[in-house]
């Protein structure tokens, strides 16, 4: 009733595709208290596959033949296969029943790359489960077998186009084990998301002045000044591994980072406003993305300045992710 009502409501609100209507009608396996999604009876759908229909047609032919030739044994065999089909239906359904699924983490990707979401399957039963398929409406899915009481992950990939946040679409977990006559499936909204960095501009771009306010404007990231060793300081998160004084580590003097050149001189500010005015928002973001990658590649200390936002200078993977994530989530409003 409520599902029908919701369809009616959504119809008055706006146009939706038939697929969306159907999706709205479908029950989605909810999250349990321990964070896993468990496939319970009411969330599992099952229908015959085209092979199931072919099987039924074969049995019908066998039935007619056996009746015509008055072959009781043929009739019995036909009924055995019919029973087998029904058992197969139950087993296909059971192959999903009680399956537990958790979202895994997704590593950030650049727009245009494929986002890979890891979905973890868990089997609580003493019997194994075979031939489990997981897929989304877009992108390739994965298949796996689960040993008794086993846990395994499967990767779901989705193509990315735009920067920002990409959430895993509704996952369809399905199986047609053991005989391929039926397919049972369930829908899951796992809610895992992946940060999509802007697509970096091609490397070797003419470096626009990503100006450093406190020193003479530099062009790009030349003049690293890495020769000018300044001294050691305590390790800070975000420091590049090549900055670390490994000898000091070896001598048990704690983790110290080397500072090169004058901090002022080598500090690189990647500045939105320093880019030429004719560039659009996305082009700026792509360019800044490229600068971040290049600065990170050579281990520079860099900061990022966006309209209304400023990321303090740093270096290393942490800094890289913070800057790229800021670029990914940039919106003109703020």
């Amino acid at each position: 009733m409520s599902a029908v009502a919701s369809v009616l409501r959504s119809r008055t609100r706006g146009r939706k595709s038939l697929r969306q209507h159907l999706a709205a009608l479908m029950r989605v396996a909810p999250e349990e208290a321990d964070g896993a999604h468990m496939l319970r009876q009411r969330y599992i759908y099952i229908l015959p596959t085209r092979y199931g229909f072919l099987y039924a047609a074969t049995l019908m032919a066998m039935l007619l033949g056996s009746l015509n030739y008055a072959s009781n044994l043929g009739l019995m065999y036909t009924f055995l296969l019919a029973g087998l089909g029904l058992v197969c239906m139950l087993l296909t359904w059971r192959n999903l029943l009680g399956l537990r699924i958790r979202e895994g983490n997704a590593t950030p990707v650049f727009a245009g790359q494929e986002a890979a979401f890891v979905v973890e399957f868990e089997n609580l039963d003493r019997r194994p489960r075979f031939g489990l398929d997981a897929e989304t409406r877009r992108g390739p899915g994965g298949r796996l077998d689960l040993p008794p009481r086993g846990r395994r992950g499967v990767q779901l990939c989705m193509p990315t186009e735009k920067r920002g946040k990409l959430c895993l679409l509704r996952v369809k977990v399905s199986t047609c084990y053991p005989m391929g006559l039926f397919r049972a499936w369930s829908y899951l909204d796992l809610g895992s998301c992946c940060v999509v960095y802007p697509r970096p501009a091609a490397s070797g771009q003419p470096a626009y002045a990503a100006a450093d306010q406190h020193s003479t404007p530099r062009s790009g990231y030349q003049g690293a000044g890495e020769d000018d060793f300044q001294g050691l300081r305590r390790y800070r998160e975000g420091d590049s591994p090549r900055q670390i004084d490994w000898k000091a580590v070896a001598r048990d003097r704690g983790v110290l980072s080397k500072e090169f050149g004058s901090e002022q001189a080598s500090l690189l500010w990647l500045d939105w406003d320093a880019l030429p005015g004719y560039l659009g928002v996305e082009d700026r973001l792509r360019l800044l993305c490229r600068f971040v990658l290049d600065a990170d590649a050579v281990g520079r200390i860099y900061g990022l300045r966006l309209p209304g936002r400023r990321l303090t200078p740093g270096s290393g993977p942490g800094q890289r992710h913070r800057c790229l994530a800021a670029l990914a989530s940039y919106s003109q409003g703020g």
């Binding site: 009739l75 019995m76 009924f79 055995l80 296969l81 019919a82 029973g83 087998l84 029904l86 058992v87 197969c88 087993l91 053991p178």
Partner: peptide, 19 residues
Amino acid sequence: ALPMLLQAIPIMLVLFVLF
């Protein structure tokens, strides 16, 4: 496969006897 066939047998018997 064996348990599948064994489980199919009672269904077969009912169909065979009552068809």
